[in-house]
Write a protein that binds this DNA or RNA. Structure first.
Lengths: 149, 149
DNA sequence: AGTGAATATAAATTCAAA
DNA sequence: TTTGAATTTATATTCACT
């Protein structure tokens, strides 16, 4: 349960300006995760999320910096991805169960990489790239992203 | 007052694992800034600082990601620096009053740039580089850092 | 504008439980 | 090991004042 919830949390916070843990709790409930603020607080700690001052004067939750602060080196992204491959202009990313949506949401925020679009199931993300060259270039980048950190 | 306090805050949080705003308030008091938690809360918002889960299982304050989240594009670093120049193997960074210490503390955390050491006064940071080449290379990097964001 | 005291709100933790 | 309810603790904001 926890793992797929974590995936969903990443998706939710990248796609919505979540300001408080209560809001996130609410959002999770809407998607069928029956949790309380206590659990959300722990999830946020485990995922290394961070409350940042937002443009509009309020706050929002976001993913923390890579590496540095997340001492163990445990950015969910790097832990959750098990393989990255491509064929022609499509990239296939395999993840642990429930994490695909979070990964996809995060990748969608990376601009200028030749990604036309993505779909995420439970443990698989499919990226449609502009062309094979873009795919060939992107894959090693992803591999680096998911290794180091 | 506020500006030099902000500079000091950056210095304090980069050099010490500050876990709460009370701790930061305390630290500021030790350095002669008579403030309360309320003010520190505002300062943290204005500086775009962020509470991250730390390696040791607790939390600590840290500088937020560049750009992205700090909508106005107001990372203190970029706002505070007024000029960057070099001569031989030394780099001179001019800042607004009180900010030099924060800048210096931050730069010290950037590894592998040929910086041998730094001293910071109130509005000036002097970096001693390995050699002139390192200085020549580093300056444009700094300029970029302090421009964009 | 910038601030502190008091307060309201949010977040982390404790403790019990499954 | 993961969780929720209750609680403690931390943080943000309000309001008055400078």
């Amino acid at each position: 349960m926890k793992r797929s919830r974590h995936g969903r949390i990443l998706k939710i916070i990248t796609e919505n300006p979540i300001q408080t843990q209560e809001q996130l709790t609410e959002a999770l409930r809407n998607e069928g995760f029956a949790v309380t603020q206590a659990t959300v607080s722990r999830d946020i700690k485990e995922l290394g999320l961070v409350k940042v001052a937002s443009a509009e004067g309020g706050y929002r939750y976001a993913q923390g910096k890579q590496g540095r602060e997340n001492g163990h080196g445990i950015n969910m992204l790097s832990k959750a991805v098990t393989s990255v491959e491509y064929a022609l202009h499509t990239v296939v990313i395999k993840t642990y169960a429930g994490m695909a949506q979070g990964i996809a949401a995060t990748l969608d925020t990376m601009p200028g990489e030749g990604v036309l679009g993505s779909v995420a199931g439970d443990d698989t993300v499919i990226l449609i790239m502009k062309n094979e060259e873009a795919a060939a270039k992107f894959v090693p980048r992803l591999e680096r992203m998911f290794k180091n950190i």
